[in-house]
């Protein structure tokens, strides 16, 4: 199944007739909303603001915590694995964690190993992006993770505890291609997302095809259209999650873009961009 088939199936699903909501349900829900208004009374804006302030507080608290994972755990005498190089001070510090697909929050890891926000509530279960503000060891159920200063990692919190820690891939643009017309490249280390932007085509086009080859650096050629097409976009921008896109250990990725007309014919080409990928220790283990 290709993406076009999938889009077609989704459109079909969106058109599929479904049963109407039963009148009893419709009336009962409306009654609950309007008659039992006390329960559902709109919350004044001031309360929302207060909640927001509390959230920021919480957030600011959670931040203080996870780096404390780094500090407290190390103070508890857990040794860094042999592959870890000596790290800077292991004193408690602040680790900023970013709830994936959500807001930035800050957390603290207590001496009991639980991740709590600034008001003492357990962090919600789920995945967070985090940055180690100092080097140290993050203790996780799946194993300790030696974190370098300013290293971005993904942590998974379950039941208030850090279940696992996973490192990220990082990027380095190789020297020979810096004058690529795809040079508008940004890479968000926290989100692990590569973003490419390029100037809009001068001729009328239907869209752009993003081309990519990846693998060992000495075995790669120039991405070709249509064989190496990985995405089609209408606007001249493309984002990709590096962890999703590449197998661990991939040495290099080469991107190119072509502008195509409605018939699928190439009307403009953009020079390719070469990127070296560097993988962190945790990804190697995972």
């Amino acid at each position: 199944m290709n993406t076009d088939d999938l889009r077609h199936d989704l459109e079909a699903l969106g058109r599929r007739p479904v049963p109407e909501a039963q009148p009893e349900f419709v009336e009962a829900l409306l009654a609950r909303l309007t008659i039992e208004g006390e329960f559902l009374a709109p919350v004044p804006l001031a309360a929302h603001r207060a909640a927001a302030v509390r959230r920021i507080g919480v957030i600011a608290t959670i931040a203080a915590a996870i780096a404390a994972v780094v500090g407290l755990v190390s103070m508890n005498g857990i040794e860094r694995p042999p592959q870890a190089k000596s790290s800077p001070s292991l004193s408690p510090s602040v680790l900023e964690i970013h709830r994936i697909s959500d807001q930035v929050v800050y957390a603290r890891v207590g001496s009991d190993g639980l991740v709590r926000d600034l008001q003492g509530a357990l962090a919600e279960d789920g995945s967070y992006n985090a940055v180690c503000s100092t080097g140290g060891v993050i203790s996780a159920s799946a194993g300790d993770y030696p974190c370098e200063t300013e290293e971005a990692v993904t942590i998974v919190v379950v039941g208030g505890r850090i279940e696992s820690v996973r490192g990220h891939v990082s990027l380095e643009q190789t020297g020979g291609d810096t004058d690529s017309s795809l040079a508008e490249l940004t890479y968000s280390e926290t989100d692990n997302v590569l973003r490419l932007e390029w100037p809009a085509a001068t001729a009328p086009v239907a869209g752009y095809a993003v081309l990519r080859v990846a693998g060992a650096a000495d075995a790669l050629g120039t991405p070709a259209y249509p064989a190496d097409r990985v995405a089609e976009v209408v606007e001249p921008v493309f984002e990709e999650d590096l962890n999703e896109a590449f197998e661990f250990g991939t040495e290099q990725a080469r991107y190119a873009v072509v502008a195509v007309d409605a018939a699928g014919e190439v009307v403009e080409r953009y020079e390719p961009l070469h990127l070296n990928l560097k993988w962190s220790r945790a990804s190697e283990e995972g």
């Binding site: 199944m1 290709n2 993406t3 999938l6 889009r7 995405a231 921008v237 493309f238 984002e239 999703e244």
Partner: peptide, 21 residues
């Protein structure tokens, strides 16, 4: 924005394809 939505949709469809596989 519309460009970001286009990117998100592209990535979402790709992820959905992978999930189904």
């Amino acid at each position: 924005s519309k460009p970001v939505m286009a990117v998100t949709l592209t990535r979402a469809l790709k992820a959905l394809k992978k999930a189904m596989e």
